[in-house]
Design a protein around this nucleic acid. Structure first.
Lengths: 265, 265
DNA sequence: CGGTATATTGATTTGGTTCAACTCCAGTGG
DNA sequence: CCACTGGAGTTGAACCAAATCAATATACCG
């Protein structure tokens, strides 16, 4: 099935990485059909609490974060439309992170049983979920580098490009820039800085005419310079399509030991 | 099968989380049987290169890291005996991180095809691999918090406790302490600090009689104090056994739509 | 409008870096 | 047995990037 025919943003993103059969895609679409909307500020899961199901983000921005006792907060990742998380729901008892909506968010939910059925009956969908999890882990790793070894200016440049590239992959950015709902305090919590220092550092980027911010949009004026400052290489996002040999292998698996997939659901 | 009967450290760790059938465990054991040894300093994979298979660490310490152009290095995680990585080998074309042996290491390898067969035919093993990946991702997330929002003293306390808890889970530590092969330069690269500052900060911990280091061992003298300093809670390691309901679900899946698993391999 | 969240700017402080000298090994070879 | 070497750790002094404290400005929203 042509990925662009999928109505769900998350299903489309997954299908772009891994070609799914009609039945498989329908399963994901099906889950995504029952979507719900929540207001900015809503907590979709919280540290120490139970997991919701696996969530497919159809619209809006969220952040995944942890708190220390004294109130310090570290944002671990941003979740954007098309993202699928948290595989932990499948495996762990209690969440060790919180997820909160930064904007109004539309999402849908895969129950644990749904997801386990994928592992049991639809290995390609299971691989797709695993891909989402591995992709997020790779983003985590790059974030550790960002916070551990880059200066404030480098961190900002890098995260702007990361967000740009990820939004580009789901059609929510163009060469110019993208909708940018983050406050400086939120950026500070993501980058391990103070809001004051984010303000100053953002100003430097604006003064050097590298970016422009206004009206809830971020415009990248000097892409080359920004990439240079942030030493950004998109490889860690792993957005390239999976090797087809991987798919073939799973196909033959399905055929040799299982009943044929029921086409048309 | 009783997990403690497994000969492979990695198989034992997985079986401790998720009860595997004899056939399934045998598959993992089988892979682990063909183990190889490498010297300290060996690179098992490197950024931009191809993935080896999925690796099961049977002995020794490794680190996963990334380099910046100017030579700055950030260690993203330590890999310890019993750890299973990198699920990316299953899914991605090129590695975005390097992995290098910090001590002599004994490990074994699961080829991509092996691993894909698990997804195709042995969903419980596939879930086990996914668990390993999710667990490492949770450790990444905590590491982001460590580097982003904790002081040097807190970071050190936290990582010491993380390593202690992880080694405890595979029987390589006791209440006293554990073998500690890390140099201060390596710790610095993991914590986003300089070796000089690690030296000073470690000294503070020793002066306060919280830890002792010597003869390649680290001894935790004041566990309570160390936990307090590092605000350490082991929940993020997700070492608890999976809910059995999860297993049941996968069992019924196998029975209803597949040929029964071939017991005894 | 008025009020609250967000952003800006300046002055000051500080945790961590940098640079550099020195110690303490463990290993190697004469 | 001792001299030589090189990696690892320690310590001090100067420095700097980012934090903190504080005041003000701006934008957004009911």
């Amino acid at each position: 099935m042509n990925p662009s025919l999928a109505r769900s943003m998350a299903a489309r993103k997954i299908a772009h990485f891994l070609e799914l059969g009609a039945a498989e895609l329908a399963l994901l679409e099906d889950a995504a059909a029952r979507s719900r909307s929540v207001a900015a500020g809503t907590e979709l899961m919280s540290e120490g609490g139970a997991y919701p199901g696996i969530l497919l983000i159809e619209g809006g921005w969220l952040c995944r974060y942890k708190l220390l006792q004294d109130g310090r907060r570290q944002i671990v990742n941003f979740l954007l439309p098309g993202d699928v998380f948290d595989i932990g729901a499948l495996l762990f008892r209690t969440a060790d992170q919180s997820v909160s909506a930064l904007t109004p968010v539309r999402y849908s939910e895969l129950t644990r049983d749904n997801a386990l059925d994928f592992f049991g009956h639809h290995p390609r969908v299971a691989v797709a979920l695993t891909w989402s999890a591995a992709q997020e882990a790779a983003i985590f790793a790059e974030h550790i580098v960002n916070v551990g070894r880059r200066s404030a200016l480098e961190r900002l440049a890098h995260i702007i490009l990361e967000l740009h590239r990820r939004l580009l992959a789901v059609g929510l950015a163009n060469g110019e820039g993208f909708e940018f709902p983050l406050t400086q305090a939120i950026l500070a919590d993501a980058l391990g800085l103070t809001p004051v220092h984010v303000s100053r550092t953002l100003r430097r980027l604006r003064d050097q005419a590298v970016i422009e911010i206004g009206n809830g949009r971020l415009r990248i004026c000097d892409h080359a310079r920004l990439r240079e400052i942030g030493s950004f290489h998109a490889a860690f996002l792993h957005l390239r399509r999976a090797p087809t040999s991987l798919l073939d292998r799973l196909d033959s698996a399905s055929l040799s030991e299982r009943q044929p997939p029921r086409r048309g659901l």
